[in-house]
């Protein structure tokens, strides 16, 4: 079985869609090696399981899928990562989406706050209009796992841009400070590495509502990867980059330069951080002036900072000073 290699070395920039997709390098999954043989056997079991679900019109979460394999003897998955990866392999091979296989992720609880109105089809099949600022509590509108047209339509929007935020703490800070209202922004909480639905939701808002997008994360190598998967496409799901990535998204910070310019409180980079930064230096997605400079600078100062480190200057500093300055720099606000 030949599958495109899902590695950093095998993603290519697709100029048509302006995102990163898998290149031509293929890997063989063969029964000559134990792992390969096992994966092939698991594929058989998974196909059988999917076939059954389709027949009986049921669906299962990825986690349930993992537990189902308990009864598969030698084909049992040892971690959920293995079963998730196999589901993605099947997507790539069949060019279907995992939803077509009746496999879905758990709700991951990413939230939205801002003056947009959507129409969601609820489980009883009724269309429901929701304004993501006025009709929801302070925790915002929860993004469902399916955000395709049959489920969600965008009705109205009164905002200038989307700001995607890594941590819940910062999301809540901006909500409390009414940044969405004051700055005409849609706040989206990413919850770490954003789930597919969150990325798809942002992409649709960006395309259909013509809202520019920017990401606001911690200042560490892992946060750089959050932006990369949102803006350029994730390595693991590069077969879906066209649907998920928002190539025009801009990175606000925290950058290594911010750490210096704003004199932020920092932590030392640990060994894993340094490894991650060095790996990013050979990652084609980070191969531009801006990222090269920031990655080298971070390695040089040996420090990282959380977005909430801005609280050093008071709770309102982020909304009164930092974000306006950075957004103006990027030309998103005047």
């Amino acid at each position: 079985m030949m599958i495109p290699l899902r590695t950093k070395g095998n993603i290519r920039f697709d100029s048509k869609s302006a995102v990163w997709k898998y290149g031509k390098a293929m890997g063989a999954r063969s029964a000559k090696k134990l792992t390969g043989a096992q994966m092939l056997l698991r594929t058989m079991y998974m196909l059988e399981f999917i076939e059954e679900m389709i027949k009986e019109s049921k669906s299962s979460t990825l986690r349930e899928m993992y537990y189902i394999s308990e009864g598969w003897a030698k084909a049992k998955f040892s971690t959920q990562d293995e079963s998730n990866l196999l589901a993605e392999d099947l997507e790539i091979i069949t060019t279907c989406m995992r939803e077509d296989f009746k496999l879905r992720p758990e709700e991951d609880g990413a939230r939205v706050m801002g003056n947009i109105t959507i129409q969601e089809m609820d489980r009883k099949g009724k269309k429901k209009r929701i304004n993501c600022r006025d009709d929801v509590g302070d925790s915002g509108y929860g993004i469902p796992y399916n955000v395709e047209k049959e489920k969600i339509e965008f009705v109205d929007c009164d905002a200038d841009f989307i700001i995607a935020i890594e941590t819940g703490g910062m999301f809540d800070r901006l909500v409390e400070n009414k940044f969405d209202e004051d700055s005409h922004a849609v706040l989206v909480h990413l919850k770490g590495q954003p789930a597919r639905s969150t990325r798809r939701f942002i992409k649709r808002l960006n395309e259909e509502m013509k809202l520019p997008v920017c990401t606001f994360t911690d200042g560490d190598p892992w946060s750089f990867r959050i932006h990369a998967s949102l803006a350029y496409g994730a390595i693991k799901t590069a077969h879906l980059s066209e649907f998920l990535a928002t190539p025009t998204a801009e990175f606000i910070g925290i950058t290594a330069s911010d750490i210096l310019n704003y004199k932020l409180p920092t932590d030392k980079l640990n060994d894993k951080d340094i490894q991650a930064l060095n790996a990013e230096k050979t990652d084609p997605r980070f191969n531009d002036q801006f990222w090269k400079h920031e990655i080298d600078l971070m390695l040089e100062i040996g420090k990282k900072a959380e977005q909430q480190a801005l609280a050093k200057y008071g709770l309102d500093y982020v909304t009164d000073t930092y974000l306006p300055e950075k957004l103006a720099e990027l030309g998103i606000i005047k």
Binding site: L5, G27, K33, G36, A195, W222, S229, I235, T237
Partner: peptide, 21 residues
């Protein structure tokens, strides 16, 4: 080691893809 020349094993040798959904 067996395996056709130049063929990359899909399940071995690939770097761990971490921290990305």
């Amino acid at each position: 080691e067996e395996g056709e020349e130049g063929e990359v094993d899909y399940d071995e040798g690939a770097e761990v893809i971490n921290n990305e959904d």
